[in-house]
C-alpha cells in the first residue's frame, strides 16, 4: 500500500517567489489538493499576491484574480454572482487572504459576504502580522510578540493586546462551516477543505501559517513549529459545523514554552510572562473542550 496520505496531484508549480520554508505555500498546496482543479481564487494584497512572480509568471494551475486589500469578501461575492449568471455551478469560489487583510482591513467586506450567505469559501492564512510590508503588527499578532511596530527595545514594547478571535467573530455570523487547519497536519487539512467545498453557503477556514523571517526562526522549522502550536494547544484543530464544535485532532498538551522557544519573536519574554501566556492558553483550551463535551 502506498504511504501517500494526501492526494498526489499538484495544483501548484515550483518556482513561486515565496521565501524558503514559507508556510503560506503549504497552505495553498494542501487547500488545492482538497478543493481540486475546479477552483477560482481571489487574493488581495498580501504575500500571496506576489507569490506568482513577475508577469507573465503564475504559480498555480487554477486561475486567481487580484483584488484590493480590503475587498476580498466583496470580490468573492461578485465572482460567485458572475459564475451563477453564466450557469457555472461546479466551480468553488475562494477568497484567500492574510491575517491583516482578514481580521483588520478586510473585516467589513468579509462580514458582508458572510451575511449575504455567498456560496464561497474564505481562507485566512495567518502568519500573525503584515509580513509582505515588513512584519508590522496586526490584530492577529499574539500578545507578547515582537514585530517591527512592537519593537520591544529597552521599554519592552512588545505587543500588549491579545489576538483577535476571528473564529468566534465568524461563528457569530451563523455560517454553516468554520474550521482551523495546520500545515503540520495535511490529512486533517485536506479533509476539511473537501468538507467545506461540499457545504452550501459561506465557509471559513483559519490556517496557521508559520513565516520564518517574521517569526524569526530557521526555515527548516516551519512544519515543526506548526506541529508544536497544535501540541501546546496554542492553535487547536477543530471545526464548527452548524454551531457544533468538534476537536478534530488532539494535541499532546506540551508546555507553551516548547512552541515559543524556537521563535525569536518571543525571545524577550520573561518566565513570568510565559506563565501568563500559558494560563491564557489553558483557559481557552479548557473552554473549547468543555464546549465540545456539552455539544457532543
Amino acid at each position: 500500500m502506498s504511504p501517500v496520505t494526501i492526494p498526489e496531484v499538484e495544483h501548484a508549480y515550483p518556482g513561486s517567489t515565496g521565501c524558503p520554508g514559507c508556510g503560506a505555500n503549504l497552505v495553498m498546496r494542501y487547500l488545492l489538493k482538497g478543493l481540486g482543479e475546479r477552483t477560482i481564487l481571489t487574493i488581495p494584497a498580501c504575500c500571496w499576491a506576489v507569490m506568482p512572480g513577475y508577469w507573465p509568471s503564475h504559480c498555480l494551475k487554477v486561475p486567481m484574480v487580484y483584488c484590493a486589500f480590503e475587498a476580498t469578501g466583496a470580490s468573492l461575492s461578485g465572482m460567485r454572482a458572475a459564475l451563477d449568471m453564466k450557469g457555472v455551478e461546479d466551480v468553488t469560489v475562494v477568497g484567500f487572504a492574510g491575517d491583516g487583510g482578514t481580521v483588520d482591513i478586510g473585516l467589513q467586506a468579509l462580514s458582508g459576504a458572510a451575511e449575504r450567505e455567498t456560496d464561497a469559501l474564505y481562507v485566512m492564512y495567518d502568519n500573525e502580522a503584515y509580513m509582505n510590508t515588513g512584519i508590522q503588527r496586526s490584530g492577529a499578532t499574539p500578545w507578547g510578540a515582537w514585530t517591527a511596530t512592537t519593537p520591544v527595545g529597552p521599554s519592552r514594547d512588545y505587543k500588549r493586546e491579545p489576538k483577535k478571535d476571528i473564529m468566534s467573530i465568524m461563528e457569530a455570523h451563523g455560517i454553516p462551516y468554520a474550521a482551523t487547519v495546520s500545515v503540520a497536519h495535511p490529512e486533517d487539512f485536506v479533509k476539511k477543505a473537501k468538507k467545506a467545498k461540499d457545504v452550501r453557503g459561506f465557509k471559513f477556514i483559519h490556517a496557521l501559517s508559520p513565516c520564518p523571517p517574521g517569526w524569526k526562526m530557521n526555515p527548516m522549522k516551519t512544519v515543526e513549529v506548526a506541529r508544536l502550536a497544535v501540541d501546546t494547544n496554542v492553535f487547536p484543530l477543530y471545526e464548527i459545523e452548524n454551531g457544533r464544535v468538534r476537536i478534530t485532532k488532539k494535541g499532546k498538551g506540551l508546555p507553551i514554552k516548547d512552541y515559543l522557544s524556537i521563535q525569536r519573536r518571543f525571545g524577550h519574554l520573561t518566565e513570568e510572562e510565559v506563565k501568563r501566556m500559558q494560563e491564557s492558553v489553558d483557559s481557552s483550551f479548557k473552554a473549547l473542550e468543555q464546549r465540545e463535551a456539552r455539544e457532543g
Binding site: Y13, G15, S16, T17, W55, P56, S57, H58, C59
Partner: peptide
C-alpha cells in the same frame, strides 16, 4: 487586463539556495 499564464517554472528559484 494583463493576464499571467506562464508557469512559474520559468523562475529558477534554486539559485537562491
Amino acid at each position: 487586463t494583463p493576464i499571467s499564464d506562464t508557469p512559474s517554472t520559468m523562475n529558477m528559484t534554486g539559485l537562491w539556495r
